[in-house]
Design a protein around this nucleic acid. Structure first.
Lengths: 255, 255
DNA sequence: GATTCATATTGGTCAGACCATTGTGGATGG
DNA sequence: CCATCCACAATGGTCTGACCAATATGAATC
């Protein structure tokens, strides 16, 4: 009856996780820094190499570590910074699991893209505007393929998010848009009156661009919201039930 | 010169990842479903058990899988749904890596909590309001400990997010608030005029609660924004530079 | 001095073993 | 017949040790 006995002994890979995380949170590990070799770290922490590898996989899944083989500085496991991929996979999977009803995602997207649009009117540089025009031009091609249009559409929204200059909002926007790329393409394929729809989207995109170019924040954010809402209303009926549209949402959650 | 030769052979654990992900995205795997035992899955896919385990760790890091030992239905690896933990770790690490400047995070938080407040006025149930009142009461204790106040503060904002009924927004809000719990506690400890500050926060919280209770969406979201902004202005000077406050933000990105 | 090649380093993978936890069903005893 | 207990099997967690593949480095060669 000496010690209360630890209720749950930390698992081996969690020891490694803790080692890396605490160093990152304490500012001792920065982007670009190399971790010790797996064998060495395993020896240091008194765990097996498999435990180290599982911890590394966990952090790599968060976009925090990146491993590459080979000797010298190019090889090894390093601290990295690619949050968007990780966020995208995260959203894609949880949306598919109906953890996040599509309606909820659209609502979040509106809030984020409103902010993006507002910030973009303040922060957009010439190069940002050029990227937006490029995406607009790509969508303007007559008789454009649905898939190509979808890609350019994504690129346009991503360009706005990038122009906003807020990395978190930009990454979240990218992740949301990318996580819905396939479902949206699916809806594009099934929707009727494609030509009519695409003309409307083009006009809305152009209007948003003008608002940003003219630095009219209020107009820009309202146009963005209106754009997302109307597109969603148009596409929702063609949206495959597979993607989990509002089954059990609360009464007021509709968009 | 037959095949273009795969530029990068899929790694073993990616085969497993693909196997699980495609089944989730195709709707063949739902929350609660059990995966085959690791040994069995390894055999099926022709990879080693370690490869399976690394893939499982990757998906567990996203909050998509959960493993537990033991025989029967209780043991095994199952599809799960705990996105908030995963999001929280994700944000905490990337904020610490200065991938996401704190100013950016605050801005995103404002956008999300504005939405939460608006939705809460429409969707809050009696039990949600009770949870909010409970957090308010916890913050009202005279001479309250800074750490306890911080916890109750978090609980209050989380309660609003929960009342909104949008799971994605709620999880993002929780993740953002939780990821800043330690830095905020740090700032609390260093800030001067604590009593004055905490009185102001209490009053703002109460005002937000009344707006939600009275179902005044516009007032609620404006009060929330004002609350977060003023708290941040108050705390920013005491914020440890370690947490990466706006070093290289664009000119217009200040809050 | 440039090129080539052996070598060391490092992550990626695998096989096989043992442990700890947990449910199950059969044996045991009332 | 029922309740209790226990051996056993299933499953994830961990470890060891080995080999492969990619990559940088430096020595040997031209």
């Amino acid at each position: 009856m000496t010690a209360p006995a630890p209720l749950s002994a930390p698992r081996a890979f969690e020891v490694v996780l803790e080692w890396v995380e605490s160093r990152i949170l304490a500012g001792q590990l920065h982007v670009g820094d190399l971790l010790p070799p797996e064998r060495e770290l395993a020896r240091q922490l008194g765990v097996s190499r498999s435990a180290v590898r599982e911890a590394v996989r966990t952090l790599a899944a968060q976009g925090v570590l990146r491993s590459s083989v080979g000797a010298g500085g190019a090889g090894g496991t390093a601290v990295t910074a690619v949050p968007s991929r990780a966020l995208e996979r995260f959203l894609r999977l949880h949306v598919a699991l109906a953890n996040f009803p599509v309606d909820d995602v659209i609502q979040a997207r509106i809030a984020l893209e409103r902010l993006s649009a507002r910030l973009a009117t303040a922060n957009a540089r010439a190069s940002d505007l050029a990227a937006m025009r490029e995406a607009l031009a790509a969508m303007d091609v007559a008789g454009i393929d649905k898939s190509a249009f979808n890609d350019a559409d994504t690129a346009y929204h991503v360009a706005i998010a990038g122009a906003a200059g807020n990395r978190l909002v930009a990454d979240m926007t990218v992740a949301i848009r990318e996580s819905m790329r396939l479902p949206l393409l699916d809806a594009f394929r099934n929707v009727g009156e494609w030509d009519d729809l695409v003309d409307g989207l083009r006009a809305q995109h152009q209007a948003i661009y003008r608002a940003i170019e003219e630095r009219d924040a209020d107009r820009a954010e309202d146009l963005v919201e209106e754009h997302i809402r109307s597109a969603w209303h148009r596409l929702a009926p063609s949206f495959d039930r597979r993607w989990g549209t509002s089954e059990d949402s609360r009464p007021g959650t509709q968009i």
